[in-house]
Design a protein around this nucleic acid. Structure first.
Ligand SMILES: [Mn+2]
Ligand SMILES: [Mn+2]
Ligand SMILES: [Zn+2]
Ligand SMILES: [Zn+2]
Lengths: 139, 139
DNA sequence: TATTTGTTGATAATCATTTTCCATAAAAAA
DNA sequence: TTTTTTATGGAAAATGATTATCAACAAATA
């Protein structure tokens, strides 16, 4: 949150109430919100907020490396403002919530890949799909 | 290849020259072709082939679990006819070629996830991005 | 061979998300 | 405060890969 504000300041972006509200949603959110979800939450405090404003600000933060963007081919983008760097995710296929699991032995994997394929690996996208405990209980 | 033909037969799909040509491209391709790429290759033997035909057949094979579909939010789908089940991929960000690396310790990861998050994991999508040896050499 | 029914090819339609536009509002600098 | 510059809001437009449509065609079956 503080980091994000600093990044905006350092790059001559103005600090507006809408921006702060968006940052707050991103910082406090645990389920990797979509633009639409951020929009709805910001609207409770700023009813005239525009969707376009959310899109524009999310793009700014993404370009400043303050936000990890998770694109899906069959769904809208999701955002992580707490860990703005590549990391694995667990996606519930029922409620669409997304969590950050702790996974050991990840750096190993990249090394193994480099050794085996000769690729220089710079990024990754690791998604596991399944059903979360809450959705399992609802059966 | 044989497997794919059998699957089509078993499900009362007709064996047409176009289908065989598409299967051949899929079976022989190593870089995970897009629909467009399959289209271009099939066209060298059947110049009147339609893009729609490729789309339709790829959908059929995907529904018969003969084809793994890799959707990208910022690019067209890619297909793997050799390993029609979830597995990791290495993507070259320069030439867009996609390879199948051999990775040990993968089942472990899913187990660790299940234990840690309580999710029942059914699918995964593991993409590593970097530059392939060929593209590195071209610098 | 005749009949049936699935397939092809060409094109138009779709689809929802994301971008763009621009007049108005509001930060920041002077 | 005044000026300058950037951001917002509301709406419209773009995006472009994928899907739907349908007449013409060709496998399969007997
Ligand atoms: Mn995350
Ligand atoms: Mn593969
Ligand atoms: Zn759930
Ligand atoms: Zn390459």
């Amino acid at each position: 949150m503080r980091k994000m504000v600093d990044a905006l300041r350092e790059n001559q972006y103005r600090i507006t109430p809408q921006r702060l509200a968006i940052l707050k949603v991103l910082a406090e959110s645990k389920g990797h919100p979509s633009v639409e979800s951020i929009y709805e939450q910001v609207q409770t405090r700023f009813p005239t907020t525009s969707l376009a404003t959310i899109y524009k600000n999310v793009a700014v933060l993404r370009d400043l490396d303050q936000l990890l963007e998770l694109g899906f081919s069959d769904d809208s983008n999701r955002y992580d403002g707490n860990k703005p760097y590549d990391h694995p995710h667990v996606v519930c296929t029922v409620c669409r919530k997304i969590l950050d699991p702790d996974i050991s032995a990840l750096a190993d994997m990249t090394q193994e890949l480099t050794r085996e394929t000769g690729f220089t690996i710079t990024r990754h996208r690791l998604d596991f799909f399944g059903v979360c405990p809450e959705c399992q209980a609802r059966r």
